[in-house]
Design a protein around this nucleic acid. Sequence first.
DNA 1: GTCTATAATTGGATAGAC
DNA 2: GTCTATCCAATTATAGAC
Lengths: 262, 262
Amino acid sequence: MKTAPKTRDIVNVNTRERILNAAEVLFAEHGFERASLRALTAEAGVNLAAVNYHFGSKAGLIRAVFERRLAPLNAERLNELAALERAARGGPLPPERIIEAFFGPVLRMSMDRRPAARGGSTQRDRGAGSGHRFIRLLGRAHTESRQAMRELLEAEYVEVVERFKAALTRALPQVPEKELAWRMHFTLGAMSYVIAGTDAVQLSASYEVRQSEHPESVMKRIVPFLVAGLTAPLPEAGERGAGANAPANGRRDDRNAERKAA
Amino acid sequence: MKTAPKTRDIVNVNTRERILNAAEVLFAEHGFERASLRALTAEAGVNLAAVNYHFGSKAGLIRAVFERRLAPLNAERLNELAALERAARGGPLPPERIIEAFFGPVLRMSMDRRPAARGGSTQRDRGAGSGHRFIRLLGRAHTESRQAMRELLEAEYVEVVERFKAALTRALPQVPEKELAWRMHFTLGAMSYVIAGTDAVQLSASYEVRQSEHPESVMKRIVPFLVAGLTAPLPEAGERGAGANAPANGRRDDRNAERKAA
DNA sequence: GTCTATAATTGGATAGAC
DNA sequence: GTCTATCCAATTATAGAC
């Protein structure tokens, strides 16, 4: 609000945000390398030099794109978890609720498919819209090997991961720590795959699985799957020999309560 | 074998394979865009122009890298499944075995960490070694948006997915088709996350989870998790309203046998 | 089949006027 | 803050000698 904006009247957004929005679109569509600043500024309807003015470099722009989104997303996760813990008054939480608190925010974001608000054009760019673009971008970032990218993601995630890990540890005392670490790993994998969704790896899934589902519907499917996995019978104590010849130990549902198995 | 190879004596590999090996290394490390043909041919110890001679273009090289690996990998999966089905003589397979047949080959490949055989140098480049490099590359390919890449992967995967889907459908008759499609999706996600492993998304997992494990050990952990998920109690019939207020339906282990729920 | 040299493009970044 | 014009580095791809 320094001086009156250039031409547009009311609903226009400033150059900085126009760039961030266009970057989100084009990075998600073509990757960080192939999306050129030229294409990007054209999409945003701003001048080429504006990127360097506002973000210093292309790398700075990439960083800004992630910071804008990840902070509120993870804050929401922590809020939901904190609300659950308040309601539980110190008791352990049902694992279902923990999963929902972690996955809900990102799932809802990934299914927010408002049209792209492309072109240099104007009104209703509000808040950059359509979170699923950012989610695709996030999936892309996970396979990035750049040092800076990894550090960025790690910094944004470390707190939520620790908090949710603690909550799950209390919720599932019968699962040894190391086993739980792996099961969280599997859980995160299933979640990531779902939100990566549409054009990433869907090919390997069956073709009936489409993103036309509502978030609640997906949640209703994935929660029982993950809770069953998290509370599954523990593998036998011996670390070795679960090869293809091990007996199919079927569907027992006993929960051994040993902690820290080997 | 047309004329005697340039200088090296016995164990040298031809230019074509040297390029493929170097491409696998550098594409996995830096991505398809950032790994230049210059860096790549330097790594391989071959001339820059050789890439275009042997593969037509950089895109052609990328295609060749994937084709060399995916075909045998998926053939192995189909072989293992076929062996199981022969042994079962027409009966349904235990889901544990199906998961192992699908995941075993890629898991073993991902944990094959023979050193990179880098540099222009020579002997023991055999078969390109260390499959985990290719696995990382595969993870990267999944987030690629290029049309050609998607078609390539889809073509390589369609048969295995169909065959394994059929096997799981027979193994889990109590799970409705659509539900099973989702559960396969979750399953593939957990698997992908594990093999993407080391530097991809490990940050979000807990730091105790390391790739130092043996394939059998990982398999022993993931199989019970996935089988429990695949055989989990079905969500209630109504499609709506599994929001954060649904009752925590805990750990029943009843399996409703309805097929095709809404 | 392999090499050198170079063409043809495209990219990120910046200087300096406004 | 925005713009034009331009620099400079790096890329893929190819032509043509060997």
